[in-house]
């Protein structure tokens, strides 16, 4: 379910948190479903349980999961903040893409055309 890229500059706990965020935002993990336990995931990925714990704390901070003492971690219901975050991420991606296009010498008209074509689909 989760794969780790050791060559990435991102730390392992961030990678795990981001992957879960992705799974949650895509709706693959439904709200109130249980996440694997720290021990289970640590054994599965052969990594330090403290790292997994850190990833889960990070997800809790982001408001994506909630934990019940003695029971485990569960996916939180989709919140306003998650929607906001998705929107922000979208703007960021778009900005980068447009900058990239500028650098490659693609003009405004071209970008607009491509964008409109996609929106119609």
């Amino acid at each position: 379910m989760i794969s780790i890229d050791y060559r990435s500059g991102k730390s392992i706990y961030e990678q795990i948190a981001d992957e879960f965020e992705h799974l949650i935002s895509q709706g693959i993990l439904e709200s109130d479903s249980q996440l694997p336990s720290v021990r289970q995931l640590a054994v599965e990925l052969s990594i330090n349980p403290n790292t997994i714990q850190k990833a889960y704390s990070e997800l809790e901070n982001r408001g994506l999961i909630y934990s019940i003492r003695g029971k485990g971690n569960f996916v939180a219901a989709e919140s306003e903040s998650l929607k906001q975050k998705k929107l922000q991420q979208f703007y960021k991606n778009l900005t980068e893409l447009i900058q990239e296009a500028h650098r490659s010498g693609i003009d405004e008209e071209e970008i607009r055309k491509a964008l409109m074509a996609h929106l119609k689909k």
């Binding site: 021990r39 054994v43 052969s46 349980p49």
Partner: peptide
């Protein structure tokens, strides 16, 4: 990998 998992289990 198996040894690392063993360690992980006991640390947890």
């Amino acid at each position: 990998q198996a040894v690392k998992s063993l360690f992980a289990e006991d640390v947890a």
